[in-house]
Computed example of a mutant assay.
Amino acid sequence: MSSAAPRHEVIPSPDALRLARDGVVVAELLDPDEARWLQEEARNVRQGFMDSKRRAAFEEFLARQASLDGQ
């Protein structure tokens, strides 16, 4: 096993800035619009696996979180 420190590199791309460690992307800087879109898509996918009662409770939870963030 090698004791060498992990190799870090920045990978520029047209739509984001990525940081890789030993060839694996570990962080990505997105523009705010893309980050919001990605967050919405992830929420929609998670809700797709929930029954209707759980989905409604999750929506209520998210609404409360949004109102707390606005304070």
Rank of each mutant, 00 (worst) to 15 (best):
L17Y: 00
D31M: 08
A63F: 02
G48K: 04
A42L: 13
D15W: 03
A56F: 00
S67K: 15
F49Y: 11
R54L: 10
Q65A: 09
D15Q: 11
I11V: 15
R43C: 05
R55Y: 01
D69S: 06
L68W: 03
F49K: 06
P6M: 08
D33Y: 01
E59T: 05
I11H: 05
M1Y: 01
L19D: 02
P14H: 05
D31F: 04
A56T: 02
E60W: 07
R21N: 00
D15P: 05
E60R: 14
S13M: 04
S67C: 06
P32I: 05
A57I: 03
N44G: 14
V10C: 07
A56H: 01
R46P: 02
L29Q: 08
F61L: 14
L19K: 10
A20N: 06
A57L: 13
L19Y: 03
E40L: 13
A63P: 12
M1K: 09
R55H: 06
F58D: 15
E28A: 11
G23M: 02
R46Q: 10
A63S: 15
D15M: 04
P14K: 10
Q65I: 04
W37C: 08
P14Y: 01
E40I: 06
L68D: 10
A35L: 10
R7D: 03
L68E: 12
S52W: 00
R46N: 07
S67R: 15
E60I: 06
A56M: 04
A35T: 01
G48Y: 05
Q47I: 05
R18H: 06
A56E: 07
D69A: 12
D51M: 03
V26K: 09
R43E: 11
D69L: 09
Q65S: 08
A57R: 14
L62Q: 14
L68C: 04
V10R: 11
S3L: 13
